[in-house]
Simulated assay, not measured.
Amino acid sequence: MSFAGFPVAALDFYDDLEVENTRAFWEQHRTTYEESVRAPMTELCAELADEFGAAKIFRPYRDVRFAKDKTPYKTHQGAFVAAGPSCGWYVQVGAPGVRVGAGFYHAEPGDLARIRDAVDLDHSGRELERLLAGLEADGFERAGDRLKTTPRGWSKDHPRIDLLRHRSLSMGRSYGFEPVIHSPDLVARVRADWRRLRPLVDWVVPRLEQLA
């Protein structure tokens, strides 16, 4: 089947799940999840696969083994298309609506050192600055895990110290409850934003792949 949009029932499902995150609720509403959340997400990703590749549709269950929060289910459904190690494009639906993004969510110590070396170099570091500034001007928001202190071995006066603090880095935007999320036009919207984010992915991937 082709993607027709996420039904309102998908957002309502997550609204209710945030209030009653229990196995009993899940079992009572499993059909809603399968038909209104997982099936449309699978269809959306299938229509984007020709250009970006196959997506991983994440499982709805949380890993609570070491978490203080023992609620069993995620309050959003995400999908990820890998372009390299721990790097690629992302889309999710939840109670706040639909959100898209791209970047890297994890880097092993050697990979992170390689990324920081690239940030340090004037050519590649300034290139990344320009990429991020252009994306922010287009309405994307920067996210990622960042050190509050200066990374070991780097000067706090480095001209790109803010970027050097990143241990992960992504750019994304929320469509919220815009009518497009309930229509087939969402495919074109996500495709356009993932294309706009491709330069960031292309900047990151070579630094991660060298140690993969």
Rank of each mutant, 00 (worst) to 15 (best):
E34H: 10
R30W: 07
Y175H: 10
V91C: 05
G53W: 12
A192P: 03
L208W: 06
L169N: 01
R196P: 01
R173M: 11
Q77P: 01
P179W: 08
A10R: 10
Y175A: 08
S36K: 03
R23T: 10
T32L: 12
F140S: 08
D157F: 04
E35I: 09
W203I: 05
A95N: 01
L128D: 05
H158E: 09
L48A: 09
W89P: 05
P72Y: 05
N21S: 07
F6C: 07
L48G: 03
A95G: 06
E141A: 12
E34K: 13
H166S: 02
S183E: 14
T32E: 10
V37F: 08
H29V: 13
F3A: 05
A113W: 06
L128C: 01
R207P: 02
A49V: 07
D202K: 06
Y73I: 01
E209Y: 00
A192W: 01
R130I: 13
S174M: 10
G53T: 08
R196V: 00
G53K: 12
L197W: 05
Y61W: 14
F13G: 03
Y90W: 14
L121K: 15
R189L: 04
V37H: 09
T31W: 10
I57S: 07
V98E: 07
K68G: 12
M171Y: 00
P85A: 14
E18P: 05
G101I: 09
G101Q: 00
V190N: 01
G176E: 02
C45G: 13
G94L: 04
A133Q: 15
G5F: 04
G84Y: 06
C87T: 11
Y73N: 09
L164G: 03
R195E: 10
L197Y: 02
V201A: 04
D138N: 13
G84H: 07
R99T: 15
V19L: 15
L164I: 09
E178K: 13
T22H: 06
P7R: 06
A10E: 01
V98K: 08
A82T: 11
Y90L: 11
D15T: 14
C45S: 11
I161G: 04
E35S: 15
A55T: 09
T149R: 15
V91N: 05
Y90C: 05
A133H: 08
E35F: 02
I115V: 11
H106R: 08
V81G: 04
F80T: 03
P206G: 06
Y175K: 03
A24C: 00
K148G: 10
A188V: 03
G88D: 11
R23L: 07
A143R: 11
A137D: 12
F25Q: 10
R126L: 14
G134E: 13
S86G: 09
